[in-house]
Simulated assay, not measured.
Amino acid sequence: MIQEPTVSVPDHDADPEPEATRRDAGATESARANRGWWDRNADEYQTEHGTFLGDDRFVWGPEGLDEVEAELLGPAEELKGRAVLEIGAGAAQCSRWLAAQGAHPVALDISHRQLQHSLRIGGGIPLVCADAAVLPFADGSFDLACSAYGALPFVAEPARVLREVHRVLRPGGRFVFSVTHPIRWAFPDEPGPEGLSVSGSYFDRTPYVEQDDEGHALYVEHHRTMGDRVRDIVSAGFRLVDLAEPEWPAWNSSEWGGWSPLRGNLIPGTAIFVCERD
């Protein structure tokens, strides 16, 4: 059972800076590292980004594209009564918006601490702490599934996650997920002018790893090219029906890691894949 969190922020100043490198990292190492990273950093993440994310807003990425306008899951009035699985839900902000439309969401995340923040916010969203590659649901349990920067950027085997989502969706179900746009891997993760020059190969799929002094991974992010993403989707049995690359809006003056108005007006930062199960 997910329990109510206490209000505390980890003292990251006491921890040594991890080493950033590019090296292989398999499924088990990636899952262990990212579960620990999100548990340690959930408080800080929600404090820093909670205002932007809102308590019951469905935003697809740092550009601020909102589902109420995008309707990538379908018109809001058609969500009523639909069973929806949110993968990599964090504090379940998207699920809370879905519930307000009359849907029946379930919020899943690998991080226990992230899900505790959903209890802090409230709203009665059903919460499940589990790995997206092994979904603890029966076949055909959901009408829709969604993931806003959840799970897929952090797993070594995204096709396995896609197969699991395909399994738990009913025929005709839709899965929409957003990830870092693949082109961004060729640029430094910097929001200013220094982030506008290509610094690496777009085709280098070596994972980004932050590790401790003993070489144990503390955080892992995996790169897939645009073609890789499409092939993963098709191999899992989905049809790709749309691909959105949100432009940076004039109202958004915020910076989030490497995302910024400067970068966002020149190169895409987010890719959103809209998939359907036959």
Rank of each mutant, 00 (worst) to 15 (best):
R160G: 05
G74Q: 06
E29C: 11
A27W: 10
A42F: 09
E48L: 10
L115K: 03
A91I: 01
R96V: 02
A76P: 07
L119Q: 03
F142E: 01
R35A: 03
D66S: 12
P62T: 04
G54V: 04
P126E: 02
N41A: 07
E71M: 12
A138N: 12
G50W: 07
F142T: 00
F154P: 06
G61Y: 02
Y149I: 02
R113T: 14
H112C: 05
G140I: 12
L162S: 05
V59Q: 02
F52D: 04
G150I: 00
L108E: 01
V165T: 13
H117V: 02
L119K: 06
S141V: 12
A25F: 10
P126K: 04
L98R: 00
P153I: 03
Q46V: 14
G90V: 08
A91F: 04
T28S: 15
I87W: 02
R32M: 11
D143F: 07
R160K: 13
E19R: 15
A27F: 10
F52C: 08
D109V: 11
P62N: 09
H104P: 04
S95V: 01
H117W: 14
A132S: 15
C94Y: 05
G90L: 06
S95W: 01
R113V: 09
G122V: 10
V161L: 12
L162V: 06
Q46E: 15
